[in-house]
């Protein structure tokens, strides 16, 4: 770990002001950033500790759910309104990491965690995301865990967050703030960028900008939502494939249908092709099978991860079946 200056402001405005400096990173729960610091993947000159600024409220009412960025994963997962009105969020969080990590990790930090790609996290490898232009050995290398959707010739790193998949299905909006600028809101579906030729740029966040809150609209579909995570180990592992489904079914017909997937994309992956195939249709098993067979159109497997194409379709199907049962 390289030396840094640790700033510990007690006001959000101070934190934003300090965070606007060059070579500065915010630290929230620290569960991912500490790993990256220890592995010299991140070498900021300054850390801005957000612990003192508050920003940890969870508010649920008729207008929707507002999760402030420093709310802990475990607190959000345990929140009774979240469990009742947006179950896919609680399920995704409880399928994440371990109880200790969830006690530390925050909502904002979770959405900004970096990929688990082993080539990215080890400075002994080349990596376009870490050192732009150095190359991507993962594409022809050990890529079982890597993305089949959204990749480029420069990067196929999987986005690792479970929460982001659930929020993508629910059309969540992120509230962003930066010193000197008015707060702005960005839908989560527009927040993450595809790697393209610049895999080092992962989101639309501007320098010095932070996520201050996540806003989730209420909906009948959200109340009937479900998260499925498939992995080798029964717990404490990142997803091979995951699926988040929110369904509003009336008289057996799909009204509002949201489907997103994790473990397969370079960002949380919304599946409009599946949604379109079910909207306004009777949700019988044949319809669900037909729709889920469309999941992952345009997938580009790299070799070891080819099985994710099949697994994605089956995960989507199972989650649709569960949510429509």
């Amino acid at each position: 770990m390289q030396a840094f200056h640790l700033a510990q402001p007690t006001m959000l405005l101070d934190a934003l002001a300090i965070g606007n400096a060059a070579d500065t990173k915010f630290i929230a729960g620290g569960t991912d950033l500490m790993q990256l610091l220890k592995d010299n993947v991140e070498t900021p000159a300054q850390l801005v500790d957000l612990e003192g600024v508050g920003l940890s409220q969870i508010r649920a009412d008729a207008s929707g759910l507002r999760l402030e960025a420093m709310a802990r994963m475990s607190d959000v997962a345990a929140h009774l309104d979240v469990r009742a009105q947006w179950p896919v969020i609680a399920q995704a969080l409880e399928a994440s990491a371990s109880p200790q990590v969830r006690n530390m990790g925050t909502i904002g930090g979770n959405l900004l965690q970096r990929t688990r790609c082993g080539y990215f996290r080890d400075t002994g490898f080349n990596c376009n995301k870490r050192e732009p232009g150095s190359g991507c050995p993962a594409i022809a290398g050990e890529n079982r865990m890597l993305a089949i959707l959204g990749g480029s010739d420069h990067c196929i790193a999987t986005h690792a967050s479970d929460l982001a998949v659930a929020l993508t299905a629910l059309d969540a909006v992120l509230e962003l703030r930066r010193a000197g600028d008015a707060p702005r809101q960005v839908p989560i579906t527009e927040f993450y960028r595809l790697p393209g030729t610049t895999p080092q740029i992962e989101t639309v966040l501007r320098p010095g900008e932070m996520i201050t809150a996540v806003i989730v609209p209420p909906s009948a579909a959200a109340r009937n939502s479900h998260y499925l995570k498939l992995r080798d180990r029964a717990s404490f592992e990142f997803a091979l494939v995951s699926a988040a489904v929110a369904l509003d079914v009336r008289d057996g017909t799909g009204r509002d249908i949201r489907v997103a997937a994790g473990g397969v994309g370079t960002r949380p992956w919304r599946l409009p092709e599946v949604e379109a195939a079910l909207r306004g249709k009777k949700l019988n098993d044949d319809a669900l099978r037909e729709a889920s067979s469309r999941a992952g159109e345009g997938a580009r497997p790299a070799g070891q991860n080819a099985f994710k194409q099949i697994l994605l379709r089956r995960a989507v199907l199972r989650t649709l079946q569960t949510a429509s049962a």
């Binding site: 200056h5 700033a7 510990q8 402001p9 007690t10 006001m11 101070d14 002001a17 300090i18 965070g19 606007n20 400096a21 003192g52 010193a179």
Partner: peptide, 8 residues
């Protein structure tokens, strides 16, 4: 903190 914040 104050020093840092001032600089910021």
């Amino acid at each position: 903190v104050v020093l840092a914040a001032t600089a910021g």
